[in-house]
Design a protein around this nucleic acid. Structure first.
Lengths: 79, 79
DNA sequence: ACTATTTGTTTTGTTTAAGCAACATTAAAT
DNA sequence: ATTTAATGTTGCTTAAACAAAACAAATAGT
C-alpha cells in the first residue's frame, strides 16, 4: 500500500482532476483512482506527476502515511 | 519510457539479482526485467528499491536518460 | 578431462493490477 | 428543472509481477 499527496497538491494549486490529468497526460479517471488510493501508479506516471507539481517523487508518494498537515503547523508569531 | 540505475547501484554494492530481489521483496526475474528496461515498475516497487539503496526515487528513475558515468568523472589530482 | 553441482540470468506462460473509454452520478448554479 | 462542471463506477485492454522452467557460466569431485 502506497500513500500519496496528489489531492492535496492538486487542490492547493486550484486544479480540477481534469486539468491535472491534461497536464500529466493521463485520463481524469486515473487521477481519481490514484487520489482515493485504489491503485498505485507506474513510476513513469509518478515521475510525470511529480514534474507537474515540481516536487520529487518522494515528496508525493510514500510507503508510510503522510502526517496530517494540521500536525505539521506551528503557531506563527507576529514580529 | 523510463530509465533507471538499478543495475549500476546493484553491482556497485556487489549484489546479485537474487540478493537484491530478496531485499526488495520481489522476484529475481522482476529485477532482470527492470534492469534491461522491459517494463517500468509500480511506484511502490520503486520506493522499496530506493529504500534498499538509500537513495531517492528520483536518483534511481528518470524520464530522461541518465548521463554515462564516464562523462561525470573528472581527473583526480594527486595532492 | 568430464560432468555434477551450484549460482546467476533469461525465457515462457499465467495471474493480477494499472490505465483507458464510456457511462452514471452528484453538486451547484441559475 | 436543466445545464454544466466535477467526480465516481463499470467493463475492457495492456502491462507489471509472479512461478516455474530453461539456459549459461563458473566451480568442485572423482
Amino acid at each position: 500500500m502506497v500513500h500519496n499527496r496528489i489531492a492535496l497538491f492538486r487542490t492547493e494549486r486550484g486544479l480540477s482532476r481534469k486539468e491535472l490529468a491534461d497536464l500529466v497526460d493521463v485520463n481524469p479517471q486515473t487521477i481519481g483512482f490514484l487520489e482515493r488510493g485504489s491503485y498505485s501508479p507506474s513510476v513513469e506516471c509518478a515521475l510525470r506527476l511529480a514534474k507537474v507539481f515540481n516536487v520529487s517523487v518522494d515528496a508525493l508518494f510514500s510507503l508510510k502515511p503522510f502526517p496530517a498537515l494540521s500536525t505539521q503547523l506551528s503557531v506563527q508569531k507576529t514580529p
